[in-house]
């Protein structure tokens, strides 16, 4: 399907969101892109911590919030050595195992290509190969001397692994930043699905900042919003060859409706009923305490918010080769849309 507003298919929308830069605390580029899209449906603003807040039908009786985070894991420059190599650390939970030999883009005074280097194999001592990768021992080679590097790059500048999204077989794609740009895509698609039908529901979209470093964006955004229901859309571990099957959900089986002590049980059951009623496939994942997503930040904001978590199955989380299926994005949008329309009809009845 081609979206009316963006004139893109679901896959194109998702990949175009993944192409945009935006490490935690530096999300302005993705925020502007999100605002451009959402402002075609809703009234938008960017708040104090950089969250994109979009509202429709303010004053509606049932207040529903959809949340996905904009930030992506990345790297930060913490120094420049005497040969012009950039010393780095992580911003968010970048998988350090995937850094060595990776193409990167450094967001200095201009976008600079580079490569992450480490100790060459012939200088490794016996047993060194079994040691964990220490990001503070890695460096980015941007091909410049110290003097030139210092002109182009400042401490605190960010970098990301430079990798373009690709089609895999069927509906599957691989790209960096699918966590959580695929969540953003499913929220945008859900908005397009329902927006013309809303009379009684006040719909708010929060595209939040800094989830990967603890969720300051969602926490503060939630303080400013009144919500009866909040749905967080994030990603969950999809089964592969290496993961324990009991810890994973499956690709192409739809959104995973989270079950956790912090998530409202009646809301979870309601989503399940809506899914069944509308014939939308879904699955479950169970967490025994906090969810590790923005649901943890939203459920206890102000006087408390009924919060649900929908996770899109994703392989290789926090690596440059995250994998999802477009089918799961659509199924997630379908479930969100069905829930919103259910609430709309309940008010009509």
């Amino acid at each position: 399907m081609v979206l009316r507003v963006t004139n893109m298919t679901e896959k194109e929308l998702c990949l175009s969101l993944c192409e945009v830069y935006g490490t935690p605390g530096d999300e302005i580029e993705i925020a502007k892109k999100a605002q451009d899209i959402l402002s075609q449906y809703m009234k938008t603003e960017i708040d104090t911590l950089g969250n994109v807040i979009a509202k429709f039908n303010e004053g509606g009786k049932t207040k529903i919030v959809l949340e996905a985070h904009m930030d992506r894991v990345g790297l930060v420059v913490r120094g420049i050595d005497e040969k012009g190599f950039l010393l780095i650390d992580k911003v968010g939970g970048t998988d350090t195992r995937t850094l060595v030999g990776a193409n990167v883009v450094v967001f200095g005074s201009e976008k600079l290509p580079g490569v992450i280097c480490s100790t060459p194999p012939h200088l490794m001592k016996k047993g060194d190969e079994d040691l964990p990768i220490d990001v503070t021992k890695l460096a980015i080679d941007i091909g410049y001397s110290k003097e030139k590097a210092e002109q182009l790059v400042k401490i605190g500048d960010r970098a990301i692994i430079d990798s373009k999204g690709v089609n895999l077989l069927g509906d599957r794609i691989s790209s960096p930043a699918l966590d959580d740009r695929c969540g953003m895509a499913s929220v945008i698609i859900a908005v397009e699905n329902v927006i013309k039908k809303l009379k009684n529901v006040e719909l708010t979209v929060v595209f939040s900042t800094q989830e990967e470093v603890g969720g300051s964006g969602a926490k503060t955004a939630a303080f400013n919003i009144d919500a009866d229901y909040a749905i967080c859309v994030d990603v969950g571990f999809a089964s592969d060859l290496l993961c324990d099957r009991t810890q994973t959900i499956d690709l192409e089986k739809g959104a995973s409706i989270g079950i956790s002590p912090v998530l409202d049980r009646t809301f979870m059951l309601e989503l399940k009923e809506v899914a069944k009623k509308n014939g939308i496939p879904f699955q479950h994942d169970v967490m025994s305490a906090q969810t590790g997503t923005n649901a943890d930040n939203i459920c206890n904001s102000k006087g408390g918010v009924k919060t649900a978590l929908l996770s899109i199955p994703l392989r290789n989380m926090h690596t440059p080769v995250e994998v999802i299926s477009i089918r799961d994005i659509k199924l997630t949008s379908d479930l969100i849309s069905a829930f919103i329309l259910e609430k709309e009809e309940q008010q009509n009845a």
Binding site: D95, R97, V166, S174, F237, D240, L242, G292, M317
Partner: peptide
Amino acid sequence: VIGLKPVH
């Protein structure tokens, strides 16, 4: 793609 078990 060559992935690996998520760090989490």
